[in-house]
């Protein structure tokens, strides 16, 4: 019979057991995570007439805004190697996928608060469910992008097959960073606000609506921004070559995996402390 023991001691003190438990729980949480994502996706669309269309309306609106700004001459964007509308459209869609991923761990954990404080289920299920939902939502956006580039005749050809992989790395990076901030974000809602605000600035030093400047000091934050290679590679898979970002992409991917693992560990260890403060 399974024996569970609870003591005040931190589980970090027996790391081997901790890591084993993490993976056991992860493998046990697939079923629940699947169910939770089906639930959330169903609920999301059942009370909506436009349904899935909402996934496009936001990026489309942003695209139209930027095209207008560019055409009216209020803002002049240096020429991009693909038509500007396509640049902005792909940029905003890819960016929205990243933002969703970044905020998903905190939002999902917050939404599951009452369940977390009352029922003992593998906590990994919350994050896994967030991941499944992101795959679903991003899948729709991805399809839309692929169709758009093919119609406009700027498709990268066989490279399109790598596009899902590039997006996957983007999603996982978002989740890793978001997950890292979740424990503190659960205690203080300043974190959530700070992310939303901060990311507005980060967007302008990412190749989302502006191309990377060729010279000048503004180029520096663009080049050191870890999201830049992810977006560039994703867009490259979509529309073809646009600079050598592969090394950056590989470095970010590997660092992301390490961050993801430790964020997961922290999330797991600190969850009882957080729940205690929430229900206290």
């Amino acid at each position: 019979m399974k024996i569970t023991i609870y003591t005040p001691e931190s589980s970090v003190r027996s790391p081997r057991k901790l890591i084993k438990d993490m993976f056991t729980d992860l493998s046990h949480s697939h079923e629940l995570a699947w169910r939770l994502s089906v639930r959330d996706i169903n609920a999301q669309y059942r009370q909506s007439k436009l349904g899935i269309l909402w996934a496009f309306i936001m990026p489309l609106a942003t695209t139209v805004t930027w095209i207008f700004l560019n055409m009216s001459g209020i803002i002049s964007v240096k020429s991009t190697d693909i038509p500007y509308p396509l640049y902005v459209f792909s940029g905003t869609l890819i960016w929205s996928i990243f933002m969703d991923s970044l905020l998903a761990p905190l939002n999902q954990t917050n939404a599951a608060k009452s369940m977390l404080s009352k029922i003992n289920f593998p906590r990994e299920a919350i994050i896994l469910s967030a991941f499944y939902q992101l795959l679903f939502n991003s899948g729709i956006k991805m399809l839309m992008l692929v169709i758009a580039v093919i119609i406009m005749g700027f498709s990268a050809g066989w490279m399109l097959l790598l596009f899902p992989f590039a997006l996957l790395i983007l999603i996982l990076t978002g989740i890793s960073i978001g997950l890292f901030l979740t424990p503190i974000g659960m205690l203080y809602n300043d974190i959530g606000r700070a992310i939303s605000l901060g990311m507005q600035f980060v967007m302008y030093v990412s190749p989302v609506v502006f191309p990377i400047p060729i010279s000048g000091w503004v180029r520096i934050p663009f080049m050191y921004n870890p999201i830049t290679p992810l977006i560039m590679i994703a867009r490259q898979c979509l529309t073809g070559y646009s600079g050598n970002f592969l090394p950056g992409f590989v470095i970010v991917s590997f660092s992301m995996l390490i961050v993801l693992f430790f964020s997961w560990m922290i999330y797991r260890i600190t969850m009882p402390v957080i729940i205690e403060r929430m229900s206290a």
């Binding site: 569970t4 609870y6 003591t7 939770l36 609920a43 009882p272």
Partner: peptide
Amino acid sequence: NGIIKPDEGRIEMHGRVGALIELGAGFN
């Protein structure tokens, strides 16, 4: 139920634990 940790002491639970702390958890 293992939802929060004790500050002192030790608990041993043998077997599958079921908790009716909140009914209908996960309902949407």
